[in-house]
Design a protein around this nucleic acid. Structure first.
Length: 596
RNA sequence: GUUCCGGUAGCUCAGAGGAUAGAGCAACUGACUUCUAAUCAGUAGGCCGUAGGUUCGAAUCCUACCCGGAACGCCA
């Protein structure tokens, strides 16, 4: 239920019940468009049909009813819209004065669920790039949002720490590493290993072109087809076989290099604020799933094809899917079936979510269908949060062509720019400069990534995307910092009321009203975002809220208010506004600096 | 070929079937002896891809088509 703070809503409900013998399932107080002079609008088009009555007539009667109420100052009925101007004290007391209670209104009444969210899922052969940063940001914000509205949330990572990709790095390290380590070179571990992955690709390309020029029949074969015909490619395959046979030397090298990568990842995660309740390693889970397939084969869910492969026919749209190769080994989806069950065993979630790029949409449709047919759970209990790619003005990011935006470099750049921007604004020395720069830089980045709806392909233009002005995280952070500054100057704490008695009726300007009108929408915004598993609505809401605050700030003196009661009321309005914006930013996992 | 996603201001994007389609950036005009100008006020900018349909009402729903992207492996 939203707008519960408004007696108005239940009043209208009761009135309709009396008049029509029934009331609509919900009534929302929507913000009234700027030039109509009201605070809220009740749109009678929305529920006239439910009451089997004419919308215009209904609006007229609702308007009449509202005119008599003490908490309503004015009513203007336009067509089927009832525009309401509230008494200032009633407005503020129902909205901004309850800023700390508003988020709990978004809690699902009786709909609390245990939700398991898997995100990040990096490979251990190279450092993370902007694409991973989008994943991490979406994942952590989703976890935070679902918790904020009252769900029981488990965040897990599934690290792909085995396979041909890591073997490539291992082969290159053996050949070119000369025993170097991250410590000896001063490199971050994931970058150190990633450099050998690049080295492998270079060497492979070299051998590939030699092969193509020396063997005529190789000329038109693809790189994949020729992989095993190059010396270095063969070695990588051999290393994978050794790994699977648990060859001690190979396993040792693998453990050592993975440990370096994990060190590096930990630093990247720490900087972003990413945390997991559990991290699964594919090296431990990749054999899961086979038994379930064999059971399913007995139950008739799967069929054995004449060539020996185990398959499932998923009908016209999804087609036939192989779940075990003819040699009896697992495919990617087999492992996913296995890890899904493993996660259910470990956490018994009601809902499982995967934050994975949209190029895998089909894979998840297939996975969910199979899980349902296996009787694991209805596919409604599984959700693929599919997000689009991050492109650069030059086109797609390609690690092979060296056009990726490295995560750690990007964080550094953001913090550098934030530091410069901060220094431009201050003559005095700041002892918390680094902390501020980090909050602002990372805040700008995360906010930018969350501003887009997940399914859109993002165009990341370094010159334009890396900004601290306009529709950005720092814009909202700045509004918070301005409030903190006012409260500091007033000698007041930010976390307790300004005074015992606040005369809210004094806050009667459009700018002051706008803040409460905005605040009243917060539970609705949170509910909508969590239902859709999409934080972008929170981002635009916070921008709108901060904009409303900045207008107020310009027009209404706080510390210089004409008397103490007005000053206190405005101080409390500020404090509550900051509380709400800070709650929103925190929900998005964006820091709230005290000063900027 | 089939399926999915997108197409809204010069650019990047918002837009629960509802009022006159919005924001930021870029351009132009103005506001800092003031509680922080990372700000604010203003000007200009639109066949909401195209054509039909449903509806009291469509950027939003339906159908067809055009354009861009992705997926359709015994890769992961």
């Amino acid at each position: 239920m939203v707008n519960m703070g408004f007696k108005l809503v239940s009043g209208i409900m009761d009135f309709l019940e009396e008049e029509f013998g029934t009331s609509p399932s919900s009534i929302r107080l929507e913000p009234c468009p700027g030039d109509m002079g009201g605070d809220f609008t009740v749109n009678c088009f929305r529920f006239a049909q439910e009451l089997k009555t004419n919308p215009m007539n209904l609006a007229g009667r609702v308007g009449e009813f509202l005119r008599g109420r003490p908490d309503v100052e004015g009513v203007d009925v336009v067509k089927a819209f009832v525009n309401i101007r509230m008494a200032a004290d009633a407005l503020h007391e129902a909205a901004i004065a309850r800023s700390n209670e508003l988020p709990s209104e978004a809690s699902p009444d009786g709909g609390r669920r245990k939700i398991l969210v898997e995100y990040s899922a990096p490979n251990t052969n190279k450092p993370q790039h902007l694409g991973h940063v989008r994943n991490n940001t979406l994942g952590m914000a989703l976890v935070s949002l679902l918790k904020r509205v009252g769900h029981d949330v488990v965040a897990v990572n599934l690290v792909n720490d085995r396979g041909i990709h890591i073997c490539k790095s291992m082969v290159a390290y053996r050949q070119f590493g000369n025993g170097a380590t991250p410590e000896s070179t001063g490199k971050k571990g994931d970058h150190f290993v990633g450099d050998f992955y690049v080295k492998f690709e270079e060497e492979f390309r070299k051998q590939l072109s030699e092969l193509r020029s020396s063997a005529p029949d190789a000329a038109d074969k693809s790189a994949d087809e020729l992989f095993g015909e190059t010396e270095i490619g063969r070695e990588a395959q051999e290393t994978l076989r050794e790994w699977e046979a648990e060859n001690p030397e190979t396993r040792n090298l693998w453990s050592m290099m993975n440990a370096w990568v994990f060190d590096g990842f930990e630093a990247t995660y720490k900087r972003m604020g990413v945390e997991f309740d559990k991290t699964y390693l594919e090296s431990n889970t990749y054999t899961l799933g086979r038994d379930i397939i064999l059971e399913g084969l007995d139950k008739g869910v799967f069929q054995k094809r004449p060539d020996g492969a185990v398959v499932i026919d998923l009908g016209k749209k999804l087609g036939e899917k192989v779940v075990l190769r003819s040699d009896g080994t697992s495919v990617y989806i087999t492992q996913d079936i296995g890890t899904t069950l493993k996660k259910r065993e470990d956490f018994a979630p009601d809902i499982q979510v995967w934050v994975v790029g949209d190029e895998q949409k089909r894979h998840f449709e297939v996975l969910f269908e199979i899980l349902e047919r296996l009787g694991v759970a209805s596919k409604n209990n599984f959700h693929h949060l599919a997000y689009g790619m991050v492109n650069l003005p030059s086109g797609k990011m390609k690690s092979r062509e060296g056009t990726v935006v490295d995560a750690d470099d990007l964080f550094d750049e953001m913090a550098d720019l934030a530091r410069k921007a901060t220094l431009e604004r201050h003559n005095e020395a700041l002892d918390d400069l680094e902390e501020r720069a980090e909050s602002i830089g990372m805040g700008a980045l995360k906010f930018m990534l969350l501003k887009f709806n997940p399914k859109t392909t993002i165009m990341f233009n370094p010159d334009e995307s890396v900004k601290f002005e306009g529709d950005t995280g720092p814009y909202v952070q700045y509004a918070c910092a301005r409030i903190s500054s006012i409260l500091r100057k007033a000698g007041l704490p930010i976390d307790s009321p300004v005074a015992e008695q606040i005369d809210w009726s004094l806050l009667d300007t459009p700018h002051e009203r706008a803040l409460s009108v905005m605040a009243s929408q917060y539970p609705f915004v949170l509910t909508k975002a969590s239902d859709a598993m999409d934080c972008s609505g929170i981002v635009s809401y916070l921008l709108d809220f901060a904009k409303a605050f900045n207008r107020f700030y310009r027009e209404c003196p706080v510390l210089g208010a004409k008397d103490e009661t007005l000053r206190n009321a405005r101080l409390e309005l500020c404090r509550r506004s900051r509380e709400l914006m800070a709650d929103g930013l925190k929900t998005l996992t964006v820091d709230v600096p005290e000063a900027m």
